[in-house]
Structure formats: structure tokens, C-alpha cells
Design a protein around this nucleic acid. Structure first.
Lengths: 268, 268
DNA sequence: TTGAAAGCGCTAACAC
DNA sequence: GTGTTAGCGCTTTCAA
């Protein structure tokens, strides 16, 4: 009677449960944020985070969102909250040793949009090699420059530059609108590739978007000017990251053989 | 000696601390998500969430991000995780009784972008009355239509419609691109107001953005076409929401007299 | 000052 | 099966 009523609106205290089960039921999404970052950086992971949260919630996990100071990331949250798994997005290579020291061994840690030569940690990146090859193969257009989104991870930047097969003078790394405009003025009326829909929006202020082909890494091709070319990755990255996390969570860290997951593009 | 070493890399277990202190140190940001929502809805709260997370983290709280099914929101997270405070964004009025039942009295609950006639809960909204008035006062342009972002909260929609002082035929609520195009075709070459930068991006596909004045409620005027007019709110909403939360958290629910906070625009 | 002990709300392990 | 108990890692209280 009283028991039934108690049962009816009984709510378990997950902090107490965490304590005894040694599992918090919390997954962290840690994302590097720069001080005065351009608007195109602020939105590029929104879709990824939203979708990932949706997937994790559907599986019973709760998501802790935490912004990291790219210069000196505070990672105590991982051990303090006993996070069951962690996604770290857009990591500076030189900060990575900090991360590895701040998490108990055995906690799945997935690094997104970063190349880190440590097989302990799984990486989820877009397959840029495949993307650039497919782009060249399916079109007769000769691209003469590429604009790369400004990732914190230097290795990833270099990898994308390499994948583009273009020379240093034809490559621009997003910094700010002024530098972007300057670069675009030098390449007016030429065809170019640009990473990230939001970066493309910036570029479209200075050149005819018809000359741009956008590699849609932010999951939002709808935002592009109609005349811009586009190359999309669909929903694949959050899905891939989620599946990988599940695998690591279930099979106690026995993940795929390679510590790199390369997310391929749609059949564009 | 051993003690010192232990001290050195001692990490408190916040779940245990929560249990005894009866405070989780967690703040929830609960945000309604529709099934197939247009892209302009997916990004409009990114800036708000990011900034709010930054402010709360700076104050020592951790943020739990949780997507709500607008149709039947699962709110157990509030009581299960013993959230110290909750932001609920974009709430359907008819779901609100669910919310009030799912949270223990005494937990600060701040509703964002919603009008709810319950003085128990604090509301943070942009001051649309002031915005429309200022816009009319500082320009000689005669606006002939307004496009309103599709909020879940019907009362807010009605309030904005009222604030615009335009008739039903001149008001369009964002639904999808087709309906938007149709509406815009009927008002070609006229001057109009549109809420939300991302909605404006959609509209700019169909009309000359020079005819649009955008009420920048997503904190991202940079994304707009250069020719579009703009009316900005700056960073004020996350700041206001944060300050209000602090007040409620510190003074044990003794907040401002009015349960409504109206965030004014910049000096545009 | 320093130390021991109780207890937060749960689960798991053990007894009955 | 059903009931009891120990203990997860902390903070707080009360004793020495």
C-alpha cells in the first residue's frame, strides 16, 4: 500500500548508484574552444554534438558537455565525475599527454577530428583522402585552391593539405575574414574547394559561390547558397563515433584493430 | 610520504560528494528537439548553450545536455541526477505541467524562449516589444511582413506576432522551405523582418537579402549576407540566464520580483 | 588540532 | 524466494 505508492513515484538516485556500481552512466563530450574563435568554428560541431547526445541518451547514458581551453585544458572532470566514456573533439597534439594522464586506464576515449599517434586511443575522422579522390574522379573541374577549416590539430591540417594534392600557395587555413578575403581575391574566378559549410558562408561574401565546392563536414548543406557545389558526409560521423563508443563500452575496450576510423562520404 | 603522493594526484569522487552534500553540482540544459526539424532550428541555440556552459563551468558547475522529445519529454533526468538547477529551452505550454511535477520544489528552473503563466518558474526571453519598437523608431523603412521562427511555445509566437503590429496575412511562421518560398513570393520587393539568422539564410535563397532586416536572436550576425539589415541582441541572453541562475542558486530561490526577464537588444 | 564514526541512497552478497 | 547487511567515497559531527 504505502509501498506501492512509494514505488509509484520512486526515483533512483543515480549518484548513489554510481558509487556502488562504479559506473556513472555519464559520457563526456569535451570540446576545445578558442578565445575569439570565428563564428564558423562555433557551429561546426553543433550537429555532431546534438546527434551524439541523442544517440547516447537513447542508450541510457547522460551527456556532460564541457568546453576545453585549447591552451590549457582542464580535464579533471573525467576522473572527478568518473565518466564512463569520453569524446574529445579537435585536440591540440601537444595537449594530448595531459589527456592521457587525466583519465584512468580502461575508460574509453575517442578523439574526434584529430590525428594522434597513440594506438591506445581511438580516432574518428572524415576520410579526406577518399573525399578528395572521389571529388576529382566524379568531376572534370580542375580545382585550383583549397580552404581548410582551422583545426587545433596540426597533423590533421597537414593530412588534409596532403590529401588535396595542392601546393602551399594554393592552400589557405581559415583564420579570420580579412585573411580569407585576401586569399580569395588572389584566386578570383578560379574553382576552389572549401571545408565546412560555415566557412563557406564566410567565403561567399567575397566570391561567387558558384566557384566553390563545399566539403560539408558540419552536417548542414542546407545552409549553403544554392549555386555552391557540395560534397556531403551525411550523418555518418556521430553514428560512427557512437557505435565505436558502444563497442568499447560493452567489450571492455576491445575495439577495432585499427585505432583510426575513417568516415566516408555519401555517394555524392 | 605516501600520504603526500596520494595527496598529489588525489581526485575527489563527485558522486560520493553529491550524495552527502545533497548537491550534484550539475546543471541541466534541456532542449526540445523535433523529429525532422529544419536546419535553422538545430543551430539557433548552439551559441546560447556554448556560452552558458562556459559561464557555468567557470563557476564550478558541470553541464548535462539533454534533448527533449517535444511531444513527450522524458524529464526523469532532473530528479535522477539531482540537478541543482535546470534550464528548459523552447517549451510547449501543454508539456509544462509534466515539468513542474518532475522536479523537486526548490530546484531553480529557468524557462528560456517560452511564456508560461506560472510565477514559480522564471522565464528568460528577448524583449520583442522593445525590439520592434526600436526598429520602427530608428528607421523610416515601412516593414510589410514578418517571418517568425517556429517556437514550440504558442504563447511566445503570439506575443511576437502582437509585438510586430502586423496583421495575420503579413505574418509567416517558419515551417519548411517550400512554405517560406511561397510566402516570400507573395511579398517580393517589399521590406520584411525575419527572426533568427539561420532562418534568414533560408530566406536569402528566395529574395534579395537587402529587403530583409534580421532580428539576430541566435548570436550570429556574422553569418548574414552583407546586404541584409540586422538588429542584434549581443551576448545578453546566456549572461542573463546565468546571472538569474546564480541568484536562485545562492539565495535559495529568492529571485527577482517578476518571474519574467526581458533581455533587451544592443544599441543597434 | 587530529581522529574516529555515522550516514548519504543505493546494489550485491549473503543468509534465512 | 525474502530480508538483512556491508560498503561504495565522501562530509560532517562528535570525541578525544
Amino acid at each position: 500500500m504505502l509501498d506501492a505508492a512509494k514505488q509509484l513515484n520512486y526515483v533512483p538516485n543515480l549518484a548513489a548508484r554510481s558509487l556502488v556500481k562504479q559506473k556513472s552512466g555519464l559520457i563526456g563530450i569535451l570540446i576545445n574552444r578558442a578565445e575569439n574563435e570565428g563564428f564558423w568554428r562555433q557551429f561546426r560541431y553543433s550537429q555532431f554534438i546534438n546527434r551524439l547526445e541523442q544517440l547516447l541518451s537513447g542508450y541510457g547514458y547522460h551527456v556532460v558537455l564541457f568546453g576545453l581551453d585549447a591552451a590549457s585544458p582542464k580535464l579533471d572532470i573525467i576522473s572527478e565525475r568518473k565518466l564512463d566514456g569520453v569524446f574529445v573533439v579537435d585536440v591540440k597534439t601537444e595537449n594530448f599527454h595531459l589527456i592521457s594522464s587525466h583519465f584512468s586506464v580502461g575508460v574509453p576515449l575517442i578523439v574526434v577530428d584529430s590525428i594522434i599517434d597513440d594506438a591506445l586511443f581511438y580516432k574518428v575522422n572524415y576520410d579526406y583522402l577518399d573525399a578528395f579522390e572521389t571529388m576529382q574522379a566524379t568531376t572534370s573541374v580542375q580545382y585550383e585552391y583549397v580552404i581548410i577549416d582551422n583545426f587545433n590539430n596540426k597533423e590533421l591540417l597537414e593530412h588534409i593539405a596532403f590529401a588535396s594534392k595542392l601546393g602551399p600557395d594554393s592552400i589557405h587555413i581559415m583564420q579570420n575574414d580579412q585573411a580569407l578575403e585576401l586569399f580569395l581575391r588572389k584566386h578570383e574566378h578560379k574553382k576552389g574547394i572549401i571545408l565546412n559549410e560555415f566557412a563557406a558562408i564566410s567565403a561567399a561574401k567575397y566570391v561567387d559561390p558558384a566557384n566553390l565546392t563545399v566539403i560539408c563536414s558540419a552536417g548542414c548543406p542546407e545552409i549553403l547558397p544554392l549555386s555552391a557545389g557540395r560534397f556531403t558526409f551525411g550523418d555518418r560521423k556521430p553514428e560512427a563515433a557512437f557505435q565505436l563508443m558502444l563497442q568499447l563500452l560493452d567489450n571492455s575496450m576491445k575495439g577495432p584493430d585499427s585505432s583510426y576510423i575513417h568516415v566516408k562520404a555519401d555517394n555524392n
